[in-house]
Design a protein around this nucleic acid. Sequence first.
DNA 1: CCTCTGAGTTTACTTTTCCATACTCAGCTA
DNA 2: TAGCTGAGTATGGAAAAGTAAACTCAGAGG
Lengths: 170, 170
Amino acid sequence: MDATTEALQDDAGTFPHLDRDTSNCSIARTLEVVGEKWTILILREVWYGSSRFSEFERVLGCPRNLLAARLKMLVEEGILATETYQEPGSRSRPKYVITPKGADLVPAVMGLLQWGDRYRADPEGPAMLSRHRGCGAHVDAQIRCDQGHAVQPEDIESIPGPAFRLRPAE
Amino acid sequence: MDATTEALQDDAGTFPHLDRDTSNCSIARTLEVVGEKWTILILREVWYGSSRFSEFERVLGCPRNLLAARLKMLVEEGILATETYQEPGSRSRPKYVITPKGADLVPAVMGLLQWGDRYRADPEGPAMLSRHRGCGAHVDAQIRCDQGHAVQPEDIESIPGPAFRLRPAE
DNA sequence: CCTCTGAGTTTACTTTTCCATACTCAGCTA
DNA sequence: TAGCTGAGTATGGAAAAGTAAACTCAGAGG
């Protein structure tokens, strides 16, 4: 940890957050990849079991050109990978499967899912439920610290990290 | 639980997911609220300490009309609430604070944050770090079941819920 | 060789969203 | 009552997304 970072961290809570350079924000960078329309919904369908172009098209009702563009981007980003499948009597064709990098998006998507379940579900409840395979208990996304404590949003402290930078003067 | 849902749940894993009605998906509904550009970044700035219109504008560099529209929507949705502040010598003006409903989005945003930290951070690391106030340990979003087990993405089983519907025939 | 099928690509058009800038408005001070 | 400031609103053009339909392409089967 360099001296600048150290100094800023000592000042945690009162660091100059309004003057920081926000171009290297991890939230913004994740949204550059998954923030476009259809992208997260494609991933949702992957974990519900779809893998073929025609399946995504059918269940999402999304334009083919956008679907092709999003799938291509997800493969280029390493979130999906292509494999091949072959129906009897047909030639082999590509299908899309999740990679470990893609699976690491699950906590974020679970977070969106459970917020929608809580605040925007139909009166009778959610359309889909998630449970732990085997134990069968309901699962959800939650925040924990490395000591194993459950953490409430108001007990999260955000402090400058190693790549913290101030905005260049205008 | 009605008979249809029961039947579908017995069939978990092989339910007709390609024929389901996806219009009541909780992920899609959450994205209707927070999926537009700037919305999540506004919330990020709220937990980093901003509350005033001019602060959001300055740190985000977002167009004023979009900022006004997003703030208005977030207040209408109950994610932010307005309070007033008054600088000495100035009239009172509105500021924006997070509500409990807004705080419930933290797991989703933490999920996006940690994915970006892992895969898209600068070589030296993240721009910001999150720690548990008091204990000081690093915090992250993770998936757990109600039995307290940590759950890996591949051990999540998605099954039809009470609002599961098949798509109307075409 | 012809046809069929899934997986795209291409094109043309409409609609929505985004962006930059100019303008307005309310109240506090001079 | 004129000017200043923070918080917006209005507007016009650019970019992205959505829609629909035609077109391509690579094999398997006939």
